[in-house]
Amino acid sequence: MGNEFVQFSLTPMLIGILAAVACALPGNFLILRRQALIGDAISHVVLPGIVVAFLVTGTVAAIPMLLGAAGAALVAVVLIEAIKRLGRIEPGAAMGVTFTTLFAAGVLILEQTDTSSVHLDVEHALMGNLESLIWFRAKGWGSLLDPVALAALPDELGRIAVVCALVVVLMIVFWRWLKISTFDEGFAQAVGLPVTAIGLGLVATAAVAAVAAFDAVGSIIVIAMFICPPAAARLVTNRLEHQVMWSVVFAVLSAVLGYVFAGYGPLWFGSQNAVSAAGMIAAVSGVILGLACLFGPHRSRVGVGREEVL
C-alpha cells in the first residue's frame, strides 16, 4: 500500500492540496469584498489565454501560460467595455456575454488543434488531470530522499508549490493593506493606502492561482476552490485571522477527502471505476460549505444585508 501510494497518489494529492490552498487564500478577500464571481470570471477567461499561449509556444510552461491568461484578461476587459458602450447594455450582461464567448472560443480552439503530445485537451482543461500527475520513479517513501527520483517529480508539483508559496508570502506581507482596504475603503484611502492597486493586486494574485491550479482541477472547477473553503470558514468564526486559517483547513480537507473518495469511493460501493478527482474535490468542498451552513456557529450573520442609513 505504502509504495503504491507514493507512486500514484502522493503527488496528485499534494498538487490538489497546494492548488486548493493557493485559491482559498485570495478567495477569503474576494468573498469579503463581494467579488466572489470574479473568481468565476477569471476561470472562464483563463482558458483561451492558456490555449493560445500553448499554440504559440508549443509548451505548457508556467510563464507563457500566465502571459496568455493575462492577455486574455486584457482582451476581456476591452470587449466588456466595448459591448457596454456600443451595445448600451448593462455591465453584468456585457460580462456574461464576454466570459462565456471567450471560454467557448478557448474550447473550440483546443478541440481543433493537435495537443496530443501534452496533457492539454478539452476534458483536462475542464476537469483537470490530477490522476495522471503520478511520480513514475518513486519506489516508496524512501524515494523522498533519493535525488534521482526527486528530479523526476512532475513539473506541475514544482509550479503549484512556487505559486502557493508566493500567495502565502503576498498574503502575509500585504495583510494589513488587504484587511483595512477590504473593511473600509474610504478610510484606507484617507490614510494613503493605494486601494486601487491593492484591489488589482488581489485579482492578479487570484488569476495566477487559477492558472496554476489549472493543472490540478481544470479551469472551471477552480471556482469551487475560490469560494467554498472561505465561505465555509466565514460561517465558523468572526475573526478574519481565524477565517483564513479555517479556509486553509477546509481547502486541505477538500483536496484530501476528494481525492480519496474519487479513487476509492466507487470501490466501496462495488463499482470498478474511479471518478474524477477534481469533480469530487469540488463536491466535497461544497458538502463542507453545506455543513458549515447548517452547523456553523456564526451562520446567521451571513446574508444579512448592509444597513441602509440615509
Binding site: L32, F183, N238, V304, R306
Partner: peptide, 10 residues
C-alpha cells in the same frame, strides 16, 4: 453606513 459591519473583526 459606508462599511460592511458583518466584516469578521473585533
Amino acid at each position: 453606513a459606508s462599511v460592511d459591519w458583518d466584516f469578521p473583526t473585533t
